[in-house]
Amino acid sequence: MYSQTKIAVPIFKKDKKSIIEEAQYCIQKGADLIEFRIDGMDNPKPQIVREIIEEINFPTIATNRVKTEGGLFKGTEEQRVNILLETVDVAEFVDIELQTNDNLIKQITETNVKTIISYHDFKKTPPLNELLNIVFKEKNLGNIAKVALMPNDLEDTLTVLAILSHCEDTIAISMGDIGSYTRVISTKFNAPITFAVSSDVTAPGQIDIETMKQLLNLDIMDIDDLNSSY
């Protein structure tokens, strides 16, 4: 039984030519989605960003990550969101951080584009109740909730799995080597998207595309099969 979880591959390049070449490589390797990390570009311009997505011509997540959540965008918040607004009719999804000003989020969510409302913590994994509250807020704003968290121990990774078990239409990732397995096992909780890499590592513990596809399509830890054997 093949996984329904889509594999997104982030592309973090500085110029148009490199971005399109990397996207083509990822598509050949079996990516289901391209995450275009706009903040990786040198001085991105809205029209150029739009042209890149059009030339890639493949389901794309437009992400322009803010510095406080691991991004590199150097302009104002208004400039950052204006670039994302230029992508809403050519991208499959737009990723916008929960911490973004409510009025700026609303400008994105009022369009017809599907949205991923995201939250990242590169230092820790907050308690489950706090994370559930974050996911609740995200789902009230957009189509898919996303949390990516740094574990300090194995128990923190189980907190991430608990989020997946409680919440539909949610991406929950435990980062780092200790949390890398959550990127694979999330398919058993019907996570809509997981993330792999080609040559660009944008978060600790990421897995390459080909390995991820093989792991997702193995019937390991199939809960339905396990239950039917008793």
Rank of each mutant, 00 (worst) to 15 (best):
M1I: 05
M1V: 10
Y2P: 03
Q4K: 15
Q4V: 00
K6N: 11
K6L: 15
K6C: 06
I7N: 06
I7R: 03
P10W: 13
F12E: 02
S18R: 11
I19R: 13
I20K: 13
E21K: 15
E21N: 14
E22S: 14
E22F: 02
Q24P: 04
Q28K: 15
G30S: 10
A31C: 13
I34S: 00
I34D: 02
K45A: 10
V49T: 05
I53T: 14
T60D: 04
A62Q: 02
A62I: 09
T63H: 02
N64W: 14
R65L: 07
V66Q: 09
V66R: 12
T68E: 14
T68Y: 11
T68P: 07
E69M: 00
E69H: 08
E69V: 11
E69T: 14
G70V: 05
G71A: 05
L72F: 15
F73K: 06
K74Q: 13
E77D: 15
R80I: 05
I83L: 12
I83N: 06
L84G: 02
L85E: 03
E86N: 13
T87K: 10
V90N: 10
A91P: 02
E92I: 00
V94A: 03
V94S: 04
E97F: 02
L98D: 08
L98C: 09
T100F: 00
T100N: 07
Q107N: 14
I108Q: 06
E110N: 12
V113Y: 01
V113D: 03
I117C: 10
S118P: 11
Y119D: 05
F122P: 08
K123M: 00
L132F: 01
I134M: 01
V135D: 04
V135H: 04
F136Q: 09
N140H: 07
L141I: 15
L141F: 09
K146W: 02
V147Q: 07
N152S: 08
D153E: 15
D156T: 12
A162M: 13
A162Q: 12
I163R: 08
L164H: 07
C167V: 00
E168Q: 12
D169T: 01
A172G: 10
M175I: 06
M175C: 08
D177M: 02
D177F: 01
T182A: 03
I185E: 11
F189N: 07
N190C: 05
N190D: 12
T194N: 10
S199V: 00
D200Q: 14
V201N: 06
V201S: 12
V201Y: 09
T202Y: 04
P204Q: 05
M212S: 04
K213A: 13
Q214R: 11
Q214I: 07
L215Q: 13
L215C: 09
D219N: 09
D219V: 01
I220C: 10
I220S: 15
M221F: 13
S228N: 15
Y230R: 08
